[in-house]
Design a protein around this nucleic acid. Structure first.
Lengths: 204, 204
DNA sequence: GCTTGTAGGCGTGTGCCGTACGCTGTCAAC
DNA sequence: GTTGACAGCGTACGGCACACGCCTACAAGC
């Protein structure tokens, strides 16, 4: 009977994403999102308890988009795990700016829970059980989280590597050599190369 | 000839660490550090360009403490890499509160550069070269960064896992089972278990 | 068709934050 | 004794998240 709501949660999250896309993560504030929606700052608090909740919604909107249906089981389990990891990476990489939020709010996301369940199912079918399966899942998650941050916060081809290349090669001979080779490694090759190492280790 | 400095960089960093230890990372502010030192807020800016520089110093003080001398080379290369990773983990885990800063400021740390150089030397002796060595190093770094965050921001025995255990087991059977087993896995076992998988993958 | 309860939205104010800028006080060199 | 370089301080500004109370649009009951 009272005045009807003027906003949906989707519109709110879309506005937040627009702000982040335009101004970066540092530009995300309640004020900025409110302005994006053409309403007053405090009006947002009718839809969201606090800033942290807004961040959580942002992350969930990303992770819920991940397809967590089991890949076709006529492929080897390692390829199926790789496919699951690939899907996660695609979703996260779509909005690298929110990656720091993804790391801190990951626990609350139903998308990640569904993803984990599917991966565990694959690992189960591959013969992993008990603590071995726990450790396998955590190792995969750990690698994905770390590698994605490495990729987006300290890219191989970015300033970090060029800084290294400018170091005194006498003190850091291998590092200098590695930086030179690093220029030839695409982010994809680096990420899936590392993943392949992990999967080989799981298999043996 | 002018008035002598009253502060050393060490005292400044120690004060910042004290604040973080007492109030957590969120309690770290220029005002708080200044109060800790008994001086005015703006006095700090004689020693530090801005807040980011202070954070960088905080991180560097941690990472420079890592022993980057090559481990004795009469042990297998995998054990030597494991030893290097262990040292890094010990240093970071000493102050888990600053872990988020460690991730973002890692590039600037000479300690990490020296660590990487040593690890590359070991990998070189183990026969890795070119892009294979690049990918191996990045995989190790990625795993370490991600696993440490998993360990300190979403601990196995923490609220995340108990939340999972309370989920409808019908929808998440493997996850529920995993959460039950997770209680028996110590952080050490989890971290080095995952690392062992990665090292096995590197060796094969 | 008027009244009234409910709930959406807004404005103001508080206490944080980082830091720009100009002043004051102290000391060593001359 | 004078001078000038520079450590340290105080004030002020523009941002932030958010508590709190007010106003107002609406639909149900009479």
């Amino acid at each position: 009977m009272p005045r009807p709501r003027t906003l949906t949660q989707d519109r709110l999250v879309a506005a937040a994403h627009a702000v982040v896309d335009r101004e970066g993560l540092a530009g995300l504030s309640m004020r900025a999102v409110a302005k994006e929606l053409g309403m007053s700052t405090m009006g947002l608090y009718r839809y969201v308890a606090d800033r942290e909740t807004l961040e959580r919604l942002l992350v969930e909107s990303l992770l819920d988009a991940v397809d967590t249906a089991p890949p076709p089981d006529d492929t080897p389990w390692r390829e199926r795990v790789e496919e699951m990891v690939r899907r996660l990476r695609v979703a996260v990489s779509a909005r690298p700016a929110v990656l720091p939020l993804t790391v801190t709010h990951r626990h609350h996301s139903p998308g990640v829970l569904r993803w984990s369940e599917t991966v565990l199912t694959i690992l189960d079918e591959a013969g992993f059980d008990g603590t071995r399966r726990v450790i396998a899942l955590r190792a995969l998650l750990g690698y994905v989280i770390g590698a994605l941050q490495l990729e987006h916060l300290g890219p191989l081809a970015g300033p970090g590597t060029t800084t290294i290349a400018a170091l005194p090669p006498a003190d850091f001979p291998h590092l200098a050599d590695t930086a030179r080779h690093a220029r030839d490694v695409t982010p994809d090759a680096e990420f899936f190369g590392g993943l392949a190492i992990l999967l080989r280790g799981l298999a043996s």
